[in-house]
């Protein structure tokens, strides 16, 4: 079972629709026990960093997600959900993130010819040829965001060229982040979600 963390954010339902379409067993939940027992956890997110962290805090999910990541549960953060995995965010003031991945979330630079938000289809270039790097290398996916992650190169799997090199996929062991919306990126996005399902469900079964 994949659990989509339900904390009143925007893209949750579209994510659920995509998993349903892929016949991936999934449920929306904010229940700590359910999240900690899941084969895989997806952290969605649309909106502002600080407000989202507050919403997680209100549901007492911060330590739950930190524990889940530490004990090796496959975890996928999407868009703002990816950004929350990092240590610090600077949207409407400095705020602490989940601190599961090292790095911070900073505004995209204002540069002539580069509109903010970075919105539309941009091409991913893999910097590592692991599972997700292979799927998304040279593939365009759909982005909508105004902030981006600054983290060390070894955590970056793919990046998209804009006013800066935007980390589009990050990974540290069992924890993956996608800055784009796989649930809005057509066939290639679904392939990425399916790869997470394989990592969470199929390989877990083969491990047992």
């Amino acid at each position: 079972m994949i659990v989509i963390v339900d904390y009143d954010t925007g893209n949750t339902r579209n994510l659920k629709k995509a998993l349903d379409y892929l016949n991936v067993p999934n449920q929306l939940s904010a229940d700590p026990a359910t999240i900690l027992a899941a084969d895989g956890i997806i952290l969605p997110g649309v909106g502002a960093f600080q407000k989202a962290m507050l919403a997680l805090q209100e549901r007492q999910l911060i330590s739950v997600l930190q524990t889940a990541a530490a004990k090796g549960q496959p975890m996928l953060g999407i868009c703002l959900g990816m950004q929350l995995l990092f240590e610090t965010g600077y949207e409407f003031g400095e705020a602490k993130g989940l601190g599961i991945l090292p790095g911070e979330i900073v505004p995209l630079p204002k540069k002539k010819g580069y509109k903010v938000p970075h919105m539309g289809w941009n091409t991913n270039l893999a910097t590592q040829s692991n599972r997700f790097g292979k799927i998304f290398d040279q593939q365009a996916t759909y982005f909508v965001h105004s902030y981006y992650a600054q983290t060390s190169a070894r955590n970056i799997v793919a990046q998209a060229d804009y006013s800066v090199e935007i980390p589009s996929i990050v990974q540290q062991n069992n924890v993956i982040g996608m800055q784009f919306h796989p649930e809005k990126s057509g066939a290639i996005g679904l392939k990425g979600l399916n790869a997470f399902k394989e990592m969470a469900l199929d390989e877990r079964l083969s491990r047992n």
């Binding site: 579209n14 629709k17 995509a18 349903d20 379409y21 649930e183 809005k184 990126s185 057509g186 679904l190």
Partner: peptide, 8 residues
């Protein structure tokens, strides 16, 4: 539409 089509 959104249950079958995954694009903006």
């Amino acid at each position: 539409v959104a249950s079958q089509v995954f694009m903006p």
